[in-house]
């Protein structure tokens, strides 16, 4: 456990040493600020931050790949993977350390949006319950997104490639699947079932529940299985690289 924390701590620090971290933070605040000013901060309306959280994943889809892209690919490229893998560390400790390090930074990113919540509190009386569940949702959604990023980072030694494939996957799950679901013709065989499956795969409906203040086991299971699946795939990739 202490080794996982050591890897995670180093990763978190090194993210803050790089300029990417600050660019990512600024961009995130900028776009959440846009959502906030356009959909939430409207004089005379209810102080309801729900839209800000409901559409948050559209921003994070493009933010998370930059957090995760270098996690393992940079280790491959620089040869440090050899140092890491000849240390007395289990594969799982490396993966969890990297994952938690990136999650740490992700938490800093989403926590920065608290300024908007505070603004809302200063001017109105928002309901705190959905705000808490929204942050819980963002955390769970983030863990799946970061796990996807870790996986693609383990696949390639080019961090740009890792970022792009992560982004494509997240866009697919976050946006495309939702569209395709609408496009499935009713006349098709098992159209309702297909729609149901696609609806379950998409990120958006799961996050929407949390944003509304609903904590449903189905949504929690979705994000946690996603996280587990991609971390397991990362393990498979790391393990198979040894035999090459």
């Amino acid at each position: 456990m202490s080794r996982i924390i050591a890897v995670a701590g180093r990763e978190l620090k090194s993210l803050f040493y790089s300029p990417v971290a600050y660019i990512v933070l600024v961009l995130y605040l900028l776009f959440v600020g846009l959502l906030f000013s356009m959909l939430v901060f409207i004089p005379g309306e209810l102080a309801n931050p729900q839209p800000m959280f409901e559409w948050n994943h559209l921003i994070l889809i493009f933010i998370v790949p930059f957090i995760t892209m270098s996690l393992l690919s940079e280790e491959y490229r620089s040869g440090r993977i050899e140092v890491l893998r000849t240390s007395p560390l289990a594969e799982l400790e490396i993966i969890l350390g990297k994952f938690l390090g990136a999650m740490g930074f992700y938490c800093v990113v989403i926590a920065s949006s608290v300024v908007f919540v505070l603004t809302l509190v200063a001017f109105g009386r928002p309901d705190f319950h959905p705000i808490f569940t929204s942050y819980l949702g963002l955390l769970l959604m983030g863990s799946m997104m970061v796990a996807i990023g870790v996986f693609f980072s383990a696949l390639s030694e080019h961090q740009i490639l890792a970022a792009m494939s992560t982004c494509v996957t997240l866009v697919t799950l976050g946006i495309l699947v939702g569209f395709v679901r609408q496009l499935v013709p009713t006349a098709w065989f098992a159209a309702t079932q297909i729609r149901h499956v696609l609806g379950y795969m998409a990120i958006e409906p799961h996050m929407a529940n949390f944003a509304r203040g609903v904590v449903d086991t189905q949504n929690i299971v979705y994000f946690l299985t996603g996280t587990g699946l991609f971390l397991f795939l990362t393990y498979v990739v790391l393990e198979s690289r040894r035999w090459r």
Binding site: S2, A6, R10, Y17, S78, R80, P88, L89
Partner: peptide, 21 residues
């Protein structure tokens, strides 16, 4: 000798010590 360029020497050795428990 692959290393982490953004770390300080002492910090790096400390990290490596942690990894070895």
């Amino acid at each position: 000798t692959p290393l982490y360029p953004e770390m300080r020497v002492e910090e790096y050795l400390d990290y490596r010590g942690k990894l070895r428990g």
